[in-house]
Write a protein that binds this DNA or RNA. Structure first.
Lengths: 243, 243
DNA sequence: ACCTGAACACCGTTCAAGT
DNA sequence: ACCTGAACACCGTTCAAGT
């Protein structure tokens, strides 16, 4: 309550020991703490203000809005991604798989954050390091510059979307093994009206999440390294400008 | 429209000409109308109730919660997707591309809906028809049953995520050609700390959205048809059960 | 039996007014 | 100049009480 007021006197710092001055990093750190303890949905401006012993209006000096705050939380969380791919040996593909698996694992612990990540991409140092690493591994895998550049976007988008999809399933304990309504609808169709779904029924819900994720990774990597980026895009990009 | 209230008397239908009886389909239709006119963020229980001349509590007789309502709106919107791929001739790849382009185009008009689509998948007839068509086209393209089944998920996820990403960019007129903060961060890096980003800089933001979407589609289709689904998953799926 | 008014417990964001 | 109390304009969901 009396941190900002440090102006002339050292203020009686006798009793209240907490209450450090407001700062962007302090706000984000508190947001991360609340998210870990109670989930992203509790990370609101009002709750944050209460936690920091001030009014919600004060936060707007340091963060533009709730979306920006959530992006900052994600950027901070990206620090937990293991970029080494340690357990995967020398193989570039194994290492890239390990990096993507680590990224997805971090987001799986906070699927609500993954949803906002699709819209408000992070842009901090942790994010740049992740992009840097993926670009390097894709290059080592034979992707040309354009393929690697466009590929990093696809890999991150796929992983983020996959994490976002598990946002509700995990939280809602309503349908235990029922998955979602979509899956049961797929199983109720009959051959006359939906022959293809009927023919593929067995495979539509097969596989463990791990198997699906591994297959998705391979699909993307195989596709990225074998599909050429159009020439015109490689040469004169819309936003590309040599400075 | 007024099937529920037909009970004993014809009710004095003299003055108030509007105010049809509540029904799930009527609620969803009103929700679609509000979304078209003012965006999904205005499709709230309270606003909907006001529009339907009742209290918000009454809606809970017909829809479980807001998420389910949004899923119903999406399902209704999927009726606009062109499943024929008319302009693409006989080529399965061209037809599939056209179907996915139509799906993405429908979602691009309501990107906020795409966000919720990632979490609450639809399960109505329009969704089933779309899945049916994609399965058929993938099969014609040489995908085996398992590849087609897993592939339809990937194709829809990719398209949905792409639409969801454009949710803010389109709305916010704050940064005109600046894209997002993430892009500008990619351009501010220097060679010493981020050599790979520097080397790929030119390509990271190159290409038109159309070029990127076309490339993404080819990456997925190429990957799906060339990457085998693991045997164990094909044979004994977690949710697969012959009835 | 069916429906809903009113309440509970929250939101984000702004801005006039304070120090 | 900097900060913030208080207000504005909303939310989703529940449930006791009505018809």
């Amino acid at each position: 309550m009396n941190a900002v007021s440090v102006r002339k006197e050292p203020i009686s710092r006798r009793e209240r020991p907490a209450k450090p001055a407001l700062s962007r990093s302090g706000i984000v750190a508190t947001a991360v703490r609340i998210m870990r303890a109670e989930g992203l949905e509790k990370v609101t401006m009002r709750r944050l203000a209460q936690e920091l012993d001030t009014g919600p209006a004060s936060l707007y000096v340091y963060v533009a809005n709730t979306a920006e705050l959530h992006a900052a939380v994600l950027e901070s969380l990206l620090g937990e991604v293991d970029l080494t791919g340690r357990d995967a040996g020398e193989d570039w593909r194994g290492q890239l798989r390990a990096v993507m698996a680590s990224y997805i694992l971090v987001l799986f612990e906070h699927p609500q954050l993954a949803r906002s990540a699709l819209v408000a991409r992070p842009s901090g140092e942790n994010y740049l390091r992740l992009v840097e690493r993926i670009l390097d591994l894709l290059s080592r895998g034979g992707a040309d510059r354009a393929q690697a550049a466009w590929g990093v976007d696809k890999l991150l988008q796929d992983a983020t979307a996959t994490a976002a999809e598990h946002a509700t399933q995990q939280h809602d304990p309503d349908f235990p093994a029922d998955w979602n309504a979509s899956v049961s609808a797929l199983h109720r169709t009959d051959e006359a009206t939906h022959p293809a779904i009927t023919a593929h029924r067995q495979h539509l819900t097969s596989g463990t999440p791990e198997q699906r994720m591994r297959w998705s990774f391979d699909v993307l990597v195989n596709g990225i390294t074998s599909t050429p980026v159009p020439d015109s895009a490689s040469e004169s990009g819309s936003g590309a400008r040599a400075d």
